[in-house]
């Protein structure tokens, strides 16, 4: 039987002779945040790369990934509808803030006016109304992080992967942004997988914790 949300069945990842992930089974329900913990090199990021569809060919992965009951195996990264936030915001430096958001916005929203309206609405939700024509490089770290999240959400993902996206932010900012991300993920009912090595992040996520070393 299948579940709504993100489901992993017997996922294993190997590099050379080393097994990083060994037969991981996991269900993340819509709106739920599950935290994957482990020290660096434990395969956390490889797991997200496998789910996202861009695992380096040096790794060998097996097992099934299901999103709302459908297997993702045959889909390329751009067809999976899985949003990802990395430790760096990775805003495209050649585009304005608005350009970045419009790049992310799903093509189902048609017409210039409608698209700009959606982008501006997202900026408003992020409290960044005045920043739409700005160069992303001139924004603060916290502002950039929020733009990156909005860009991801505008693509209309069905699941969210977080690859230590709070790692580079200062303490107070970190707490704010973390709440901002979780709030949006829950509001939209996104199954969310958070990868971190910070226990505080896991605690704030409030959900189940999977320890990769123990797995």
């Amino acid at each position: 039987m299948t579940h709504d949300g993100l489901e992993l069945r017997g996922v294993s990842i190997k590099v050379g002779d080393a097994t990083l992930v060994d037969g991981l089974d996991l269900c993340v329900a819509p709106g739920e945040v599950v935290t994957v913990m482990g020290p660096s090199g434990s395969g956390k990021s490889s797991l997200l790369a496998f789910i996202g569809g861009f695992l380096d060919p040096a790794f060998a992965a097996s097992g099934e990934i299901l999103l709302d009951g459908a297997s993702l195996a045959a889909l390329p990264a751009q067809g999976r509808r899985i949003g990802i936030l990395f430790q760096d915001d990775l805003l495209f430096p050649h585009l304005s803030v608005r350009g970045n958001l419009a790049f992310g916005l799903t093509q189902d929203v048609r017409g210039r006016a409608a698209r700009l309206a959606r982008v501006d609405e997202a900026l408003e939700q992020a409290g960044l109304e005045g920043f739409r024509d700005r160069d992303p490089a001139t924004l603060s770290g916290g502002q950039r992080a929020r733009v990156a999240l909005m860009r991801t959400l505008l693509a209309g993902p069905k699941a969210l992967l977080l690859d230590e996206p709070f790692g580079k932010l200062d303490r107070p900012l970190r707490k704010d942004f973390r709440e901002f991300v979780f709030e949006h993920a829950r509001m939209r009912g996104l199954p969310t997988l958070l990868v971190t090595h910070d226990a505080e992040d896991a605690e704030a996520a409030g959900g189940r914790v999977v320890d990769l070393e123990a797995a």
Partner: peptide
């Protein structure tokens, strides 16, 4: 940085 391309792919870009 290959993550720019990955971010774009995750946003649905071909």
């Amino acid at each position: 940085d290959p993550r720019f391309a990955r971010s774009a792919a995750a946003l649905g870009a071909s």
